[in-house]
Design a protein around this nucleic acid. Structure first.
Lengths: 284, 284
DNA sequence: CATGGATGTCCCATACCGCGGAACGGCCAT
DNA sequence: ATGGCCGTTCCGCGGTATGGGACATCCATG
């Protein structure tokens, strides 16, 4: 048989194909048939069928007895949960995400950088009527989101350049930063002020404030953000959100054992802190 | 080479081995070396190494450059998140879990039944000092937990028997139900009263109240529970917890489109049919 | 009702590719 | 030095995954 265009630096073919099949499932297509999968990954039906059979016996996929179509199975969920559970930041951060949410009622995200992209690892949904769509486990570009930019800002110059090289700076809105130099300068500003803002750079009407979380070694391991609808925001609320994410990031970092004596000083504690009062029973 | 003791009903060996390797990772051992994995799954180092290499190129595992050890990768987390995101019950249930938590401050679990075991698909941690250890994505036996029992109680007799057959009724404490007949009777009681209690049947000092969640077809798709430390409980609080989970389960079910005005009583002891068959489908 | 197309499933001979033994180099504690 | 354990690489052999094909089923169509 002819060698497929792929086939490069080796790797076990059957395993690669099995993974390709698994990855074909997505939120948009949570259920797929043998033939659909075959077309999607470019394999013969029988090959796909055999691979699916094997995956089914491991529980990684399950077949609907009625429709004959396949879905991902719970063991994958178990493994995936393990991945983040080893990220202790998620456990430590949870209460503070809730605290932020109680204070402002907006959508709160916890995210990390992976392969130059943002991965949402936890989230609390807005109680407001207008919400932004996002999902734990999903990815988002880094150069145009608050979480992404505050995480990018902590990378060494070389790493940032590599990310730009790999992912590019795709334009989403008129505000999106698409010039490498501009992004580098912007990152410098973010480092200096200790937080990042996204003002409609990914989606026109969405804005967002984010701050970085450090672990005990001082390394940035995650970031926290508040997402809100631009129309509902003014100067004061932006400052409030900035203050909220900075405080939360600081507390979470401390919870991870970080001793950030160095940073202390540039906390804008004087300014916006009291704004966060309005505790507990904030209805909506 | 001799055929290994396993190798029975076919299946692609390389894929099965890859899955076995992935499943060797657990919360207790989030990082493993080639040799450790080789011993764990009974394979030659070089075989494991090659499999890991392939898995690494797909991102399912990542290798720590320093220690050379392997961890699970974020793409697995993405896939796993997809599994539950398709379970809309999780999204719908979240606010109600939070509501329960605000009302009592205890640990709240959302769980489903899979392969005769409970899988926790969401959780809110207790704010109290004494907590129970659990984790989203983990499994627990069904016959001795509140969530498990209330889910088992909805199974047809044959399915319950099959679960008992497969999983057994392992004893964890002096209170654990280990007799099939006793469990069947207990399930009948649970159906009748509309909730399940676990009074130290899994862990001595832990007790728990649970209620079942129905989807729009009337099928039980999940259950919600409150877990608490037995010492802190009295009759009144147990009743309160029962009331909380029942109300939440009802609201979540409604959120899933269930119209259960007629429920509760018409749950037949002979749960042999899919609970409440509903005439949503007019034709056909 | 017949027909054609698409589907899921099963089987099988072939050649291809994964297998594991072995060897190598690096890294420790002995 | 030295032995043990590690991760990694290489290679020839033989098992095994492959995909074509056949078949039953199920629809929508003629």
């Amino acid at each position: 048989m002819r060698v497929r265009e792929a086939a490069k630096a080796s790797g076990i073919r059957a395993v690669e194909r099995a993974v390709a099949i698994l990855r074909t499932f997505s939120s948009g297509t949570p259920e797929l048939s043998v033939s659909e999968l075959g077309r999607a990954v470019g394999l013969h039906k029988s090959t796909v069928h055999r691979l699916l059979g094997t995956l089914e016996r491991t529980g990684f996929v399950v077949q609907d007895p009625g429709t004959k179509r396949y879905r991902l199975g719970l063991p994958l969920f178990e493994l995936g949960s393990m991945v983040v559970s080893t990220l202790e930041v998620r456990r430590v951060a949870r209460p503070y995400l809730e605290e932020i949410h109680r204070a402002c009622g907006e959508t709160v995200h916890l995210g990390i950088l992976d392969e130059g992209e943002v991965v949402y690892i936890d989230k609390i949904e807005s109680t407001r009527r207008v919400r932004m769509y996002s999902q734990v486990g999903r990815r988002a570009p880094a150069h145009c989101t608050g979480l992404g930019k505050v995480l990018l800002a902590q990378l060494p110059d070389a790493s940032l350049a590599e990310v730009i090289e790999r992912r590019g700076l795709r334009r989403f809105t008129s505000k999106t930063i698409t010039s490498p130099k501009e992004l580098r300068d912007h990152c410098a500003l973010i480092r200096q002020q200790g937080y990042a803002l996204d003002t409609g750079e990914h989606e026109e009407l969405i804005q967002c404030a984010a701050a970085a979380i450090h672990d005990h070694t001082g390394k940035v391991v995650a970031a926290v953000s508040i997402t809100s609808v631009a129309a509902a925001m003014d100067q004061h609320r932006v400052a409030e959100h900035v203050s909220l994410v900075q405080q939360a990031a600081r507390k979470i970092s401390e919870g991870l054992g970080a001793t950030l004596h160095i940073r202390q000083k540039d906390l804008p504690g004087s300014g916006a802190r009291p704004a966060t009062a309005r505790p507990l029973t904030s209805g909506r």
